[in-house]
């Protein structure tokens, strides 16, 4: 009897979690992409570039370091899919979209800080990606991924475009 309950718990709980995660994860990702696209459009006038030097034609009034970061996690369903993928190899699409969201979000936050501080451009933008692990020993899974975007915000006398 006890083993039957155990079996049900061991199989049913992960299945329910998978089903729930499938819907919540998809919803969260779709909403996030909507928000990313809308904000990217709003901040289109503020270019963030990877130039190491400030173009000589730009007259800089003031500057400062700006940064944006985000830690996001993949959902249980996608982690399960990624686990299956490692059996056959190939593109792990679930992690690709996670990293894409994280990078775009970090760049957006960096640009938002630049905008709030009155800068019109960000130069020498850099991206750093780190895996964030959880403290608990029995769970060796990645808690999430952190992306940091940083650069130098510039207040320009003339519009850069």
């Amino acid at each position: 009897m006890e083993s039957a309950i155990d079996a049900v718990v061991n199989i049913a709980v992960p299945l329910v979690l998978l089903a729930v995660a499938f819907f919540t994860g998809r919803r969260i990702e779709r909403r996030h992409y909507q928000s990313i696209r809308a904000r990217e459009n709003e901040l289109r006038m503020l270019p963030a570039v990877t130039f190491r030097q400030i173009p000589s034609a730009w007259v800089v009034d003031s500057f400062g370091v700006v940064s944006g970061s985000v830690v996001i996690s993949i959902d249980y369903f996608k982690r399960f899919l990624a686990g299956l993928r490692t059996l056959v190899g190939g593109r792990v699409a679930s992690y690709e979209s996670l990293l894409d969201r994280a990078r775009r979000e970090a760049i957006l936050r960096c640009k938002e800080e630049a905008h709030a501080r009155g800068y019109q451009a960000v130069v020498n933008l850099r991206l750093e990606t780190t895996r964030v692990t959880r403290a608990s020993k029995n769970n060796r899974a990645t808690a999430g991924v952190e992306v940091l975007a940083f650069g130098t915000g510039l207040e320009l006398r003339r519009d850069p475009r």
């Binding site: 979690l17 996690s73 959880r134 952190e146």
Partner: peptide
């Protein structure tokens, strides 16, 4: 960490970690 564990199931931003880092 517990909050992050919950977010690990549903997905999404781990705001606590973002702020801490």
């Amino acid at each position: 960490d517990i909050m992050a564990g919950i977010k690990n199931i549903f997905g999404g931003e781990l705001t606590g970690y973002t702020e801490l880092l």
